[in-house]
Design a protein around this nucleic acid. Structure first.
Lengths: 265, 265
DNA sequence: TGAAAAGCGGATTGGCTGATCCGGTTGCAG
DNA sequence: CTGCAACCGGATCAGCCAATCCGCTTTTCA
């Protein structure tokens, strides 16, 4: 799964069995699952779906979420299978394609983010609202490799993700307009820039990635977020939240990334 | 070739044939190849290497360079083979492993970058020197997918790349010190930050990637470089070199990336 | 409670790709 | 010119992995 070219699935010989669609298209069955734990109800059925089936569907979804988050969009299905404790037949019944599974997971992730943006809009301080947006995004990128890989304006061309993306863009525009009106950001900053800036922060975050290598701060990415934020406001440099890493730490990070493997279980 | 875990090559059954090492370890046989075109001499032999062998080796190297640049580290070997017009036996004789080939290509790329840094150090203006460094890096990331993937502090653990990386770090430190002495950058910026900032710019660059989608500027990344640069200097915002993209353009970029395929030939 | 429908899971398939093998060819020293 | 070692290239191998198939089990509903 190389991530570009989601179009012609490899060796699809016959027709595709249609999945038993448990949760309808529109979000908000149960909003934004708290983290890692599987909600035992995805409810809002379209075809009732037997009890054990629903249970398994959720097991798969939860397993996929952690697996994708830890290893990125390229985890082997077998990994997810092991984690979920179901057979491959079961998985592919609910999600006919690996991409379908990834999308289902990303939908949840995007919904979580959307909730955070809404929260940011409720903040009194317009600058703080923007900071919250970018911080949240970076946090999510730091802990979810699949999200990291699908963020920014590239996103793949899937209706449901498209929609969510647009909704978020609208909200982000609101956030930015407010900040501009208050004069706390440079006014040549456009809403369209935000996805790219998020990608930029993601780039730095990715380099810091392995959540916590011994000597290093798992929050190093905040430092680079700081630099970028300072680039967004008119007045220039502000204090940074993290000290830079030492060369030794950088070496350790690189080594950790080279050997990176499993982690869960 | 998933990029992490360069350690246990898949299914290596027997012992490995040692390659006929044409160019010695130390760089500077012929410095920094101008672009795409194969230099017909990599010279400085260690075992003379027959004439046709050397010719083929260079063909492979050149093909690999373009293939890796266009499609990233995951191009199929077959692609490179087609481009080079040689058989797989030939390729694997010179580069026993796909990684070996990639490393050979990256060595050249890194050497090119190193030359640019040296040039930046020769610039009178210390701020401009830093700008040149970051701009060059971004340019290279924009046009070379393999470089983009291997940049930042993660780099894989290969002696020869390690070395080059360290040499560049030293030079970059010099560049930064000079700029700090002149007071043109904030002084909480450390040399160790540079690789992360480069990764950040790379993140944005990647989002802009498909060199030129119709309506969009192929230089959009400069805009985000601009934001980051403004975050590095004490005085704050400066004019940006590019207008933001429109929503329609962003859509086009995404679409282009989704269908991205081949391109050469 | 019983039977049919729905679901389960793992053995299996098919295809992709990195790497190897080996019969034939070619450059080079003497 | 000649012999041979080095080299060529493509047929082939082997492992990996997404996706399918099908005999058996579980749920559901009358």
């Amino acid at each position: 799964m190389v991530l570009p070219s989601w179009d012609a699935p490899p060796h699809t010989s016959g027709v595709r069995r249609l999945p038993p669609t448990a949760a309808g298209g529109g979000r908000r069955g149960v909003q934004a699952y708290p983290e890692g734990v599987s909600p035992d109800t995805v409810t809002e059925s379209e075809k009732p779906l037997r009890a054990d089936a629903l249970r398994n569907r959720n097991k798969v979804l939860a397993a996929a979420r952690t697996a994708f988050a830890q290893q990125g969009p390229d985890v082997a299905i077998s990994e997810i299978l092991k984690l979920a404790g179901v057979g491959s037949g079961t998985l592919f019944r609910h999600f006919p394609t690996k991409q379908d599974l990834l999308v289902a997971v990303l939908e949840q992730t995007f919904d979580q983010l959307d909730d955070q943006i809404v929260a940011a809009l409720e903040d009194e301080d317009p600058w703080q609202g923007l900071v919250t947006l970018l911080t949240t995004t970076a946090e999510m990128q730091a802990r979810d490799a699949a999200f990291l890989a699908s963020v920014g304006p590239e996103l793949f061309a899937v209706e449901s993700l498209q929609q969510r993306n647009e909704r978020m863009m609208v909200r982000m525009s609101g956030l930015l307009d407010r900040a501009k009106a208050a004069g706390v950001v440079r006014d040549d900053l456009a809403a369209e820039d935000l996805p790219f800036l998020i990608s930029a922060i993601g780039g730095a975050t990715q380099s810091c990635a392995p959540a916590s290598v011994v000597g290093t701060s798992p929050d190093l990415w905040r430092r680079y977020l700081g630099f970028v934020l300072d680039g967004l406001r008119p007045q220039g440099a502000h204090p940074l939240p993290q000290p830079p890493p030492t060369l030794a730490q950088m070496k350790a990070m690189k080594a950790a990334k080279a050997s990176m493997r499993c982690g869960a279980e």
